Computed example of a mutant assay.
Amino acid sequence: MNLIRRGNAPLSTLRGGPIEDQFGRMVENMFQDFFAPMAQGGHWLEDGLAMPRLNVSENEKAFEVQAELPGVKKEDVKVSIDGQRVTIEGECQQANEQREGEQVVYSERSTRRYQRSFTLSSEVDDAGAQARLENGILMLTLPKKQGGAAKRLTIQ
């Protein structure tokens, strides 16, 4: 922040006292807490549970979904499909390795869980669905379920 001195007021009057310093720190911490989840990728639902960011595209045959799951291994990802509803879950466990004679002083790496559910505009053919995980991005190819031909009813 730049302070611009206007008029003949001494510079010392532009600096806040202890109350203003505490308020400034509180506001700064509030903004850091608010923007931290966005910087880490995803929105937080509750303590330790994040919603991964998604890109969803569609063509006439399938939906293509990309979800950010940084640090998650493929064996820790679960995708379930129920009609039009898709649910993605994943867990990233980052163990803090401690060598003999060392002590962890500060650690921000911990277990993080991801979960996201969304509904698509048409049902998914779960038998033909494919998923792969590359560089922290889960890529789903979800073919649309082909509707049967219209059935003509016989009038009796």
Rank of each mutant, 00 (worst) to 15 (best):
A149Q: 13
L49I: 14
A36W: 13
L49T: 09
I81C: 04
A131K: 06
G7E: 07
E97T: 08
R53W: 06
G128N: 10
R5W: 03
M30N: 08
L14E: 11
V79W: 02
A36G: 06
G147L: 15
L11V: 14
S12M: 09
D21P: 00
N8I: 03
K145D: 07
R25S: 08
V104Y: 08
K74V: 11
L153R: 15
L133D: 06
E28M: 13
T87Y: 03
R132I: 04
L49A: 01
K145M: 10
D76K: 09
E97L: 09
S110N: 10
K145T: 11
D82L: 12
N8M: 05
L11D: 12
A39D: 11
F118K: 08
Y106V: 14
Q32Y: 15
G90A: 05
R99S: 00
M26P: 01
G48L: 07
R116T: 01
N96P: 10
N135M: 03
A131I: 00
T119P: 00
S80H: 07
V124A: 00
G16S: 08
G147E: 15
H43P: 00
T13A: 13
R5Y: 06
G42D: 04
I88N: 02
A131N: 00
L133T: 10
E102W: 03
R15M: 10
F23H: 11
R112A: 05
D33W: 10
E46T: 14
K61V: 02
F118Y: 05
S110E: 14
A95N: 12
M51P: 01
Q32F: 13
M51H: 08
E60M: 11
E46C: 08
Q146N: 12
R6E: 11
R152M: 12
P37S: 08
L69N: 06
Q115N: 07
R112F: 03
T111C: 03
Q103I: 14
F63D: 01
G101E: 02
D47G: 03
G128I: 03
A9L: 13
D21L: 09
D126M: 07
D47S: 07
T154S: 10
E123Q: 10
S121Q: 14
K61G: 04
N8V: 05
Q40D: 12
G41R: 07
F118C: 02
D126W: 06
G17M: 11
Q98G: 04
L54S: 05
A67N: 00
R132H: 10
H43N: 09
G71A: 13
L138R: 04
R112W: 02
S122D: 07
H43K: 12
Y106P: 01
L69R: 07
V104A: 10
G136R: 06
I155H: 12
F118R: 02
N55M: 06
D126T: 02
V56G: 00
E20M: 12
E91T: 14
I88S: 02
G7T: 03
R152C: 08
E123F: 12
Y114C: 04
E123T: 07
V86K: 02
L120P: 07
M139S: 05
F63A: 00
R99A: 06
I88Q: 04
L120T: 09
N2L: 15
V72T: 05
E64Y: 12
R53A: 04
L140S: 01
